[in-house]
Design a protein around this nucleic acid. Structure first.
Length: 501
RNA sequence: GCGGGAGUAACUCAGUGGUAGAGUGCAACCUUGCCAAGGUUGACGUCGCGGGUUCGAGCCCCGUCUCCCGCUCCA
């Protein structure tokens, strides 16, 4: 087992032990690709989410010309009219039935395969081949079965009854019966709207939050007095039937996204693309992803999504997770989606989605720059980044969260449960509890309480001791150094305010 | 989907056919005078789940679920 894997195992164990992340439906044996956030994980995630919302919607960034950006937020439905996903390209393009070959391990689109079938003798195997490439099948007929291709006729595999599959020889094998039945490789979760499970009622759980924004583009324009360039932001869950959920919560089937669709003039797209790439990278650094573990990568042409092909491309902000090292895993993608989505939705819905520019008296489809961040992945990256081993301290490991995202901001303790120290500490706790995420603890020895707080990633602990009784000061103990200094008990609130800025 | 490995307490793990274990953590009390101190006590397990073999299964066999690793996949 590698050192990296070992540290990942330690992170997973700590997350379970301290209530960050639990396996979903664990008492039933779990369910592949789903995870639950425990009390500390939920708070951590909410803190990251709230910072993003604050820095994006409530206090949007300053643009390249020093202007305050125009940004509004929405929260759209997870289930939309199924035609949305036809327009977006999620239905139709990527949900073709596939056939696997158990022998060659190759996978084929069902409708891309044809078979050569003997004209009269049903006992002779059928030879599958890829559309337009019949030669390998002809060779097998001639060399291995000593028959003439003339005796065979080509038929699409889709017209062959499934019960005949055991007589079909796959394109890349000599054995028969190695092809599986065609299976849907649908990325989207399918469901039914209404009490009756009727094919007319099919709907899908959204595979990305972006479409909800495009669907509301017109409503936002009509009601919010915004002008291009402006952005619409959204945080929400999305669902994908990933082929292989893997790497803890990194690739799970239910996850949360934090997305901006930034609408701008087509000839300004490059400028905004560069701006958002830079801004989003800086944001991740500000919440705690520092140093060499953060990487920026531009997509090659061949890996661009269908909506990005004509634009400036896609830029990934990546993090070096323990399981991906020395490589990186995607944390956020900044894509130039061009005007693909608005055009598609105008075509499919027949709603007029062009923007009328009152200044220039012209009508056009804005281009879209999309910074799309994974909230769940951000949580994981920040957990991995925070995880720190230290054989010198009792807990051996601690979580070095930025104070602004730490699930518990401070612990408040009496040094010992004597001489009224607990009462003073509890009074301090009462004063702070509605403004800060503080915890009060009198149990056991102070060393154990510090160790517990280290593992939870609590950056500060305030301890009432006998000196407090003399001069109204308490000790503040810093998680990262374990050093202590004294502050006046009246200054604890302002201390926290200063350290959360 | 394929191949390999694993699943025993909250965590880490021991236990190779004969009474279910350890350390840590957790909880309570005593003791405390700043880093999981010490002492006493306590709770926590249908050994992943289901079948089978056996007088007897945590251990052997079959199935299944989940996790890990490698392929595959990932618009």
């Amino acid at each position: 087992m590698s050192e990296l894997q070992k540290s990942m195992d330690e992170i997973v164990a700590l997350c379970k032990r301290r209530g960050f992340i639990y396996p979903a439906s664990e008492i039933y044996g779990g369910i592949n690709g789903f995870w639950d956030f425990g009390p500390l994980g939920t708070q951590l995630k909410n803190n990251i989410r709230d910072l993003w919302w604050r820095d994006t919607v409530l206090c949007p960034p300053i643009g390249p010309e020093g202007e305050i950006l125009s940004m509004v937020g929405v929260d759209t439905s997870i289930i939309q009219n199924p035609r949305v996903w036809e327009a977006s390209g999620h239905v139709g393009g990527f949900n073709d039935p596939m056939v696997d070959c158990r022998e060659s391990k190759n996978r084929y689109r069902h409708d891309h395969l044809q078979v050569l079938r003997h004209r009269s003798d049903e006992s002779i195997p059928m030879f599958a081949f890829l559309e337009g490439e019949p030669e390998p099948a002809y060779r097998k007929i001639k060399k291995q079965h000593k028959l003439s291709p003339e005796e065979f006729t080509a038929v699409p595999l889709t017209e062959i009854p499934l019960s005949y599959l055991e007589r079909v020889i796959g394109p890349d094998t000599d054995k028969k019966g190695t092809l599986t039945e065609p299976r849907q490789f649908n990325l989207m979760f399918k469901t039914y709207v209404g009490a009756v499970q009727d094919e007319d009622a099919v709907a899908y759980l959204r595979p990305e939050t972006a479409q909800g924004i495009f669907l509301n583009f017109k409503s936002v324009l009509d009601t919010m007095r915004v002008k291009v360039p402006f952005g619409i932001a959204q945080i929400g869950r999305a669902f994908r039937n990933e082929v292989t959920p893997r790497n803890y919560i990194f690739r799970s089937r239910e996850f949360e996204q934090m997305e901006i669709e930034w609408f701008c003039q087509p000839d300004q797209a490059k400028k905004w693309y560069d701006f958002w790439c830079e801004h989003r990278k800086n944001w991740w650094q500000a919440v705690g992803l520092k140093g060499a573990n953060l990487n920026l990568r531009s997509h090659g042409k061949e890996e661009l999504a269908h909506y990005a092909k004509e634009g400036c491309g896609t830029f990934d902000i990546e993090y070096r997770f323990p399981f991906s090292a020395p490589g990186f895993g995607e944390l956020e993608g900044v894509a130039h989606r061009t005007d693909f989505d608005l055009r598609q939705h105008q075509q499919y819905s027949r709603a007029k989605l062009e923007y009328f520019d009152p200044d220039n008296q012209e009508r056009y489809f804005p281009h879209v720059i999309e910074p799309s961040a994974g909230l769940s992945r951000g949580v994981l990256a920040l957990i991995c980044e925070a995880f720190t081993t230290d054989p010198e301290r009792p807990s051996k490991m601690f979580m070095k969260f930025n104070p602004r995202i730490a699930p518990i901001t401070a612990g408040i303790f009496p040094l010992v449960n004597k001489e009224g120290m607990a009462e003073i500490a509890e009074k301090l706790y009462q004063e702070l509890r509605c403004r800060y995420a503080v915890q009060f603890d009198v149990k056991q020895t102070v060393g154990k309480r510090y160790a517990r707080m280290d593992e939870a990633g609590t950056p500060f602990c305030f301890t009432v001791d006998s000196q407090t009784l003399q001069d109204q000061t308490v000790t503040v103990r810093y998680r990262d150094t374990t050093q202590q200094e004294r502050v006046n008990i009246d200054k604890v609130a302002s201390f926290l305010q200063d350290h959360l800025a």
